[in-house]
Every structure is written in C-alpha cells, then in structure tokens.
Design a protein around this nucleic acid. Structure first.
Lengths: 146, 146
DNA sequence: CTTTATTTGTTAACATGTTTACTATTTAGA
DNA sequence: TCTAAATAGTAAACATGTTAACAAATAAAG
C-alpha cells in the first residue's frame, strides 16, 4: 500500500489536475506564440494591459500571475521592444505606471484570430455549457481564502 | 475600445483562469513545502512515483508535467539526496527506471497531514459537490485534443 | 516633527522552464 | 543484413520562477 492511498490519486489532486489541464490548453497557444516574438508571459502581460489600461507593476504581477522580480526583467525587454511604455507616477514616486503601446496592441490584434480558433476548438469538444461551468468554478476557486 | 473586447476578458480566458486558480491552491502548498527541503516539482515527482511504482523518466515527465531536461536535473539532485533511485533498464538500455526510496516515502508521509488539511480547507469553502464537479471537468479538459 | 514600519520595485543567486542540438540505443525498411 | 528513422535521455544556452536582501518613497506611530 503506497502513501497516496491515504490521500488522493494525482488525477484527483487539485494542484496537479489544474496543471495538467493547463498544459493541454497551453500546448496550441505556445505553438501560436512561438511563431511570433512572444512568450506566454509577455502575452499575458499584453492582455492584462489591454484590459486594464495604465496600471502599476504590482497590479500587472497580480493579474498576470507573475512575481515582481520576473516582471521587472520581462518589462525591461518589452519596453526595449516597444510593446509597453513606463513612467514614474507623479503622486507616489515609488510607483511605475505601465501601459500598452500601439505596437503591443498590434501584436494582440495579429494573433486574435489564432487565439479565438484555439478557444473555439476547445469549446467544440467540451461544449459551451460545460466550459462556462468550468470557468465559473475556477473563478470561485480563485476567491477561496486559504 | 480595446483589443480584448473582441475576445474574452482574462477572467474568462481558460489559460489565465487555470493559472490564477492554481496560484490560489498552491500558495498554502508552497508554504508547507518551504518548511521542508522540497520544491513543488520534487513533491509532484514523489507523488507520481509513489502512485506508479518504478517507471521510466518519460512517464514521470508526462505525469508530473515536467519537460525531460528539467527532470534530468531535478532527478540528479533527488538521487543525491536519497529520495529516489535510478537504474538502467536491462531490456532497453536507453531507458532509465526510477523509483521512490524509503526516504522519499518518509517525506511524503511527514507532509500527509498538512497536505490533507489544505485540501480540507478548500473543500470546506467550495463544497464537496462543486469540487468533484470541477475535478471532473478538469479531467475532461485534459482529454481534449487540440 | 521624527523615528519606525510599510509599500514599491530592483538586484542577485540559484532552481526550473524551454528550445535546440547531441549521443546512444532500438526499430523499421530497403 | 545494412541503413535510415525513431526513441530515451542528456547538455547547453537563455528566459523565467523563486527567495532573500536591498533602496527609495510613503505612511503610521510616537
């Protein structure tokens, strides 16, 4: 009898199940991103900035699930590549405000079709109803206090 | 009008929703693992090995969602620390068979209680029914061909 | 006020993620 | 057979993840 028999099989372990499901979903997204000059992280940052407008770095980190040290490095290269712009906040000089540039928006637009196609393929196989159910449950899980 | 208004808000984006949910679930797990000498990846490897017995590295990589180059490095240190053992397969000399050691099992057992407590906290807030529903949907998503 | 604590972000160090190239072995085909 | 393709794993290079330590600015407490 193994140790796991006391607990849950990895398939019913929430952290592992979330990771495996994500790998499935991300595989075609990574294929898409590899064609252009974007990593998965940069893609998330662009989407968050496009959604929220000009925000401080801590907000990006929280929304895009990145730690600040990673974000610092990534934004440095994204600024050099002209996808985002940064400025010091005048009220609170600790804050750096970040926004997406036209070039960044252009990259998002260029990959909109491919992105939607992937989402459609998943929807076609799972069904809209189940997918909405899943997204609702995931939102609820995010809100759990642990 | 931003680019995202054509697509989905990040909260309804499956890859991002999966990532955010996972961060919520993993936060307390990382706290638990930091207390001992284990990273999240090593913890997954031990769980998979405990569940599957002696397997080749490709199987571990697939089950624990790790790429082989990462696994190569991680198993090297885990072997040095006595948590797993490796041997060349006699039939197929390309294969390396890996199994968990008593020391590895001891580490799993030591953290069983903490691990279960985290799972219980989440269950207490989400409810068993919703959690099972979520796990079912995640398993189904994993099986989707994209 | 002014000292202390908190917040925001950076740097450094090391582990892991990711791609490409490579070795060794095995399998499949001509 | 012999050779080409496929498979299992490793090595190297660079990006990102993660923790700890740090600097600067602001907020809180005295």
């Amino acid at each position: 009898m193994n140790t796991q028999s006391h607990t849950k099989s990895t398939a019913r372990s929430l952290p592992i199940a979330l990771l495996r499901a994500r790998e499935t979903v991300m595989a075609p997204v990574r294929d898409m991103l590899q064609g252009i000059q974007l990593t998965e992280q940069k893609w998330r940052i662009l989407r968050v900035l496009d959604e929220l407008g000009e925000v401080e770095q801590s907000t990006i980190a929280h929304e895009a699930c990145l730690l600040l040290p990673s974000l610092t490095r990534i934004l440095r290269t994204m600024e050099a590549e002209g996808q985002i712009s940064r400025r010091q906040d005048s009220q609170d000089k600790r804050r750096t405000m970040v926004k997406i540039t036209d070039e960044g928006r252009r990259i998002l637009e260029e990959n909109l079709a491919a992105s939607l196609e992937i989402a459609d393929k998943i929807e076609a196989q799972m069904g809209r109803k189940k997918l909405d159910n899943l997204l609702d449950l995931l939102e609820e899980l995010q809100a759990v206090k642990v």
